[in-house]
Amino acid sequence: MNAFLEAMCFAHACKVFDEGKKIPREQLLEILEAGRLTPSSFGLEHTRMLVISNQELKEAMMPFCWNQAQFSTSSEVIVLKSLVADIIAPTEYIRESMKARGLDERYMEQLKGFEEANFKERKDFESWSMKQAYLVASSMVNCAAFMGIDSCYIEGFEREKLEDFLKIDTQKERIALILTFGYRAKEQKKKYRKPLESLVEFRD
C-alpha cells in the first residue's frame, strides 16, 4: 500500500481531540497550502479560509454548531467560506484572475455563457461555489492525515446564525462547511468501508 493510501486508512472523523496537543504552525501552513493548491471550477479559487485558534472564540461558536466537542478540543477550527458576488461574471475579481493567468475576453464570455445556461438564481451560484469548498476540504484533510494530524468535517451548523456571529458579509460570501484539526484523544475504531468490487464498475 502506498503512503497516500496509508494516510487515508489513518484518517477518520475525529469526534474528540487531545486538548493538550497543538498543531505546529509550520504544519498548519502546509495544510492551508494544500487547500490553496486545489483545483477549482474555471480556476476562480472560490474558497476562503478563516482559521480560528482562539479558544474562547472556538467555544463561543459551539451553540451555533450543535455544541459539538470538536470545537472546544481541537487545535484549530477552519471555516471555509465561498465567494458569491465576485464569481458572477463579469466582475473585477474575475478580470484580475484573468490578467494573472494571461487570459483574454474570450474567457469572460465563456464563463458568462456557462453561468447563464446553468444558474438562474443567487442560490444556484452559492451552491456551485460551495461545492468547490468541498474539494479544498478534501485536500486539506488528506494532507493533514499524511502528517499524522486528525480532522473532522463539520456540516452540522446553523449557517445564518454563525455567519451573523462571525460578522460575515453574506452578499459577498457564505459559509460552506467547517473543518476541525488536532490530534485524537484515543485510538479510532476499525475503519469500515464496502469492498472495492461492490463500488466500482469497469467497462474495458
Results as ranks from 00 to 15, higher is better:
87 I>S: 02
51 V>M: 05
100 A>L: 09
113 G>E: 12
83 L>Y: 14
75 S>P: 14
57 L>C: 01
88 I>V: 10
54 N>C: 00
46 H>Q: 14
112 K>C: 12
102 G>A: 09
67 N>G: 08
84 V>Y: 04
44 L>T: 05
84 V>G: 04
50 L>N: 00
62 M>P: 10
51 V>R: 02
64 F>A: 04
124 D>R: 02
45 E>V: 12
76 E>G: 03
109 E>N: 11
95 R>P: 00
105 E>M: 13
66 W>D: 12
102 G>L: 08
95 R>D: 01
106 R>N: 12
75 S>K: 12
108 M>K: 00
120 K>F: 06
86 D>A: 09
115 E>C: 12
72 S>Q: 15
52 I>E: 14
99 K>T: 10
122 R>H: 03
75 S>M: 13
84 V>S: 04
123 K>Y: 08
76 E>M: 01
55 Q>F: 11
113 G>R: 05
98 M>K: 03
79 V>H: 08
76 E>K: 07
44 L>R: 05
121 E>C: 04
49 M>F: 14
66 W>K: 10
63 P>A: 06
101 R>I: 07
49 M>G: 01
68 Q>G: 03
84 V>M: 04
49 M>K: 13
50 L>H: 03
93 Y>R: 10
123 K>H: 08
57 L>H: 01
107 Y>I: 11
100 A>H: 10
82 S>N: 12
118 N>L: 02
80 L>V: 02
62 M>V: 01
107 Y>W: 08
76 E>P: 08
74 S>M: 03
55 Q>M: 09
64 F>C: 07
101 R>N: 13
117 A>I: 01
78 I>C: 04
102 G>C: 13
46 H>M: 09
77 V>Q: 06
86 D>K: 14
100 A>K: 12
84 V>D: 00
58 K>T: 10
122 R>F: 08
65 C>V: 05
96 E>D: 11
119 F>I: 03
74 S>E: 05
49 M>Q: 15
113 G>H: 09
52 I>H: 07
71 F>T: 06
67 N>M: 08
54 N>F: 03
99 K>M: 12
104 D>L: 00
52 I>V: 15
55 Q>Y: 01
55 Q>D: 15
86 D>L: 04
72 S>T: 10
117 A>Q: 07
76 E>T: 01
73 T>M: 06
115 E>N: 10
49 M>R: 11
60 A>F: 05
103 L>Y: 15
67 N>C: 09
47 T>M: 06
42 F>Y: 15
70 Q>S: 11
93 Y>A: 05
42 F>D: 08
54 N>S: 01
112 K>F: 00
